[in-house]
Design a protein around this nucleic acid. Structure first.
Lengths: 277, 277
DNA sequence: TATAATAATGACTAATTAGTCATTTGTCAA
DNA sequence: TTGACAAATGACTAATTAGTCATTATTATA
């Protein structure tokens, strides 16, 4: 298991520099100081490694932001904290962020594209719920434009410090983007992205499937974890999904128990969506 | 010469779908219906093909926008036309635009990165001069933020119709972005991107080299062209650079003569920068 | 028609790739 | 010390790659 982590870390460095395709398994194993065979003991293929990297970072990233958006009490501070922690995460995991910017939609592997679209849509949902919390009904007809403007800010300003090693004043950056976002939110009158337009390319993720998917991931995590508060909480939460008996306060508390465990970030996010808090 | 064009067109289609690295020369030649040897009669290498594609589109693209920004009389209309023609070009050359979005900074080849940075900086200069024309001195301390917001809009909104085949209402899109841009321009108070920050990563393109470069490209184009108004204009403009004798009106007229010739777009842009109109 | 010049071919090389598997090495308990 | 098991190795395969070059086909000219 520790070997797997080593490979993921070292591969990430190479991928960030050269991209997925230009980096060979040979290079990765050399960079790790292990043999080629050892690589295939940890991963079935190069593609599996890439998929695990994408999952690892995207789940963490999305769920962190989601938690913030759903739990920050102070609405005044929310937008600031959103930008701050987004760029903080980018900065912290800059190798993965670079891949995200470079690789994006690319690569022949259909599976990657589907995965990335899924996470991209999850992220859009999170931003949407933030926008709705912040500005309410008054921006209902311009909210999709606002989301795309926010995404545009994130992309363009990330490039600045990801690809040129510039000193980064996170506080100023967040403040500056908060001002821009508020300006747009309060004064846009001509929306371009309508509800219909969104529906044209956002194939809905169907709900029933999602329940089964949550239960499946929970089973997997329950098996992985040793005896702990986290494991017990997961088991109780699973029962709650199968037949609801517990009070909201208890469910909320159980979710709180698992949310900081590094392996439970994603299930944490899925449960927040499922229980609607 | 016609063969070269065929290869460029067909290669572009494949590159847009699969990216540079995932597309083999074999695939390209098959898609063209020619032999592998024939490919190497037109291009020294696969990299040369890629570089020519980048040059072909980026020169055309940059110089078209530059002409618009420098020559549109009606300042009210300028921003609208900027967005309209930008997205119109993207739409027209969507295969190349896709590559631009996907490939971006990527690829191991240092030469590509340098080329793309050069064109990116040229584009930033064009946008800067537009912003200065539109809003004057009052936005001098926020103008770089404005440039990056405009670039963000361009990127994010392009994705919508490049990667999902959506119907595109260019008029509405341009109007919508004009409103957003004006809002930001008139109300931003907290800039993030300062003059100093810009200088940290924009290595200046030195001026003396640029004069020699212009003359070199002119010589090349003069050789390429058959006897025509364009050729004569180029010869006169070259003499003007070597020793200025002609009146501004004549110089302007000579530039006008060449600006619409597809092979002269870039030299046209360089001359506008050199003569400062 | 005959000759020269140019264009086009595709089998070839050498390098690199992802992935496999017989073999070796290391680590335990008995 | 032995024997059993797991961990790790790297030479190997089969496929693919960019680029070459002797050969053939086509065209233009005399």
């Amino acid at each position: 298991m520790i070997k797997k982590q080593l490979i993921m870390e070292k591969a990430l460095e190479l991928f960030a520099k050269q991209g997925f395709e230009a980096t060979s398994v040979q290079q990765i194993t050399e960079h790790c100081g292990i043999s080629k065979g050892a690589f295939y003991l940890s991963f079935k293929s190069k593609d599996e490694l890439i998929l695990e990297l994408i999952n690892h970072f995207m789940t963490q990233f999305t769920s962190d932001i989601d938690y913030l958006v759903k739990n920050e009490e102070n609405t005044e501070e929310l937008l600031y904290k959103f930008y701050y922690s987004t760029f903080y995460s980018f900065h912290q995991h800059s190798d993965f962020a670079k891949i995200l910017m470079k690789e994006q939609m690319r690569s022949l592997n259909e599976e990657f594209i589907i995965k990335m679209r899924y996470y991209d849509q999850s992220m859009e949902k999170v931003i949407l719920s933030m926008v709705e919390r912040l500005y309410g009904e008054e921006i209902s007809h311009t909210k999709y434009d606002l989301i795309y403007c926010i995404k545009g800010f994130m992309k363009t300003y990330s490039e600045l410090f990801l690809f040129y090693n510039l000193p980064l004043d996170l506080n100023l950056l967040a403040q500056s983007l908060v001002e821009k976002t508020n300006l747009l939110a309060r004064h846009i009158t001509i929306p371009f992205i309508s509800q219909e337009l969104i529906q044209l390319f956002q194939q809905p993720m169907n709900e029933e499937e999602s329940r089964e998917q949550i239960l499946e991931i929970m089973d997997q995590k329950i098996m992985e974890l040793g005896d702990s508060i986290e494991k017990e909480s997961l088991i109780l939460l699973k029962q709650q999904i199968l037949e609801p008996t517990l009070s909201p306060a208890i469910v909320k508390g159980l979710q709180e128990n698992i949310r900081n465990h590094p392996h439970c970030k994603w299930i944490s996010y899925l449960l927040r969506s499922y229980f609607e808090f």
